[in-house]
């Protein structure tokens, strides 16, 4: 029981230690304002990481999410600004398109037994390319709906705000937890990651599950793209490059095994928050280059992968 939860407990410990270090240096870290901003600023990463957790749990990978986020932004900008589409309708439309896109990738992965790495790499180029087909410029979004949505927030005691965006992320995590641990779909995802061949022999609907996993990932990437467009109020083809790698890092730091089968959604939330914490610390520090975030993430990622190897080797020995 404890061994199974060890990776997530370690992640949590890292977060708590990190938070305490920040707190010791900058007492204002205790304020709800910082915490609220931490949630808001990392909302898009968190949302896309939920989808990525499902993908990695199933033993796959989705490299297309960064491009899907950019595509979403560009699509929204073009649809709302150039064609005067209702923003809410545009949201629904882009979520639907992304879901279809993901389903297509899942279908390819399953039908032709192509590694997810290759298919989603192709998806990554395709989605990024489609951005440039729509426009090469950065198009600002001036729709009043944008201002209204970003203004929705619950005031927290101490001057902080829990924004609507942060609430979307937390709700996504809540839904992800339920989906992963309390539904048949969730069990099937873990089954695929455990051993695909066995899962098939046991009657797990492998094809349907694979398609749904990538559909979910792309859908959440589009949702993250919508949230991302709230930050920037613009659609730009080169936005969110490399986000897929940040996402994978958050999932792995959150205790999910890259080989699939083991991990939790809640761990991913902590993984995302650790990334956010490092970012915030560097902002507070003021003198450090923001690239130190990447260096810290790299070091953490490395440590966690070594830890995972160690743990799985230990559990093999224990048998």
């Amino acid at each position: 029981m404890t061994r199974r939860h060890l990776p997530v407990l370690i992640t949590l410990a890292v977060f708590i230690v990190g938070y305490l270090i920040c707190l010791a240096q900058f007492p204002s870290f205790a304020s709800t304002r910082v915490i609220g901003n931490l949630l808001t600023d990392n909302a898009f990463l968190g949302i896309v990481a939920v989808g990525m957790t499902f993908v990695i749990l199933s033993g796959g990978i989705d490299l297309s999410v960064g491009s899907v986020i950019a595509f979403t932004g560009v699509f929204l900008a073009v649809a709302i600004e150039r064609y005067g589409l209702n923003p809410y309708l545009a949201f629904l439309l882009v979520l639907g398109i992304a879901a279809l896109f993901g389903a297509g990738m899942g279908l390819l992965i399953h039908t032709f037994q192509i590694p997810a790495f290759i298919v989603t790499l192709a998806g990554m180029f395709l989605a990024r390319g489609l951005c440039f087909v729509l426009t090469t410029d950065s198009i600002p979004i001036n729709a009043p709906a944008y201002g209204q949505i970003t203004d929705i927030a619950v005031s927290l005691p101490g001057g902080g705000r829990l924004t609507f965006i942060a609430m979307i992320m937390l709700a996504t995590f809540g839904a992800g937890i339920v989906l992963a641990h309390y539904t048949r779909f969730g069990a099937n995802v873990y089954a695929l990651g455990g051993n695909r061949a066995s899962a098939e022999l046991m009657g797990v609907p492998v094809g349907k599950t694979t398609i749904r996993i990538y559909m979910l990932s792309s859908f959440l990437a589009a949702l993250a793209g919508i949230v991302f467009s709230f930050y920037t109020s613009a659609g730009y083809s080169l936005a969110a490059t490399g986000v897929e790698l940040d996402t994978i890092a958050a999932v792995v730091i959150g205790g999910t095994l890259l080989t699939g089968g083991y991990g939790t959604i809640i761990g991913t939330l902590v993984g995302v928050l650790i990334q956010g914490l490092i970012q915030t610390y560097i902002t507070f520090e003021g003198t450090l280059s923001s690239w130190w975030t990447k260096i810290a993430i790299g070091a953490l990622l490395f440590a966690f992968i070594v830890l995972q190897r160690g743990l799985s080797a230990a559990s093999l020995r224990a048998r």
């Binding site: 048949r184 099937n188 873990y190 089954a191 455990g194 051993n195 066995s198 046991m202 009657g203």
Partner: peptide, 19 residues
Amino acid sequence: NLLPNLSVAENLFIGRQPH
């Protein structure tokens, strides 16, 4: 040919979990 990462109960009932 079962799934080592799932619980025993899940292995027994996967695809037909009481819900």
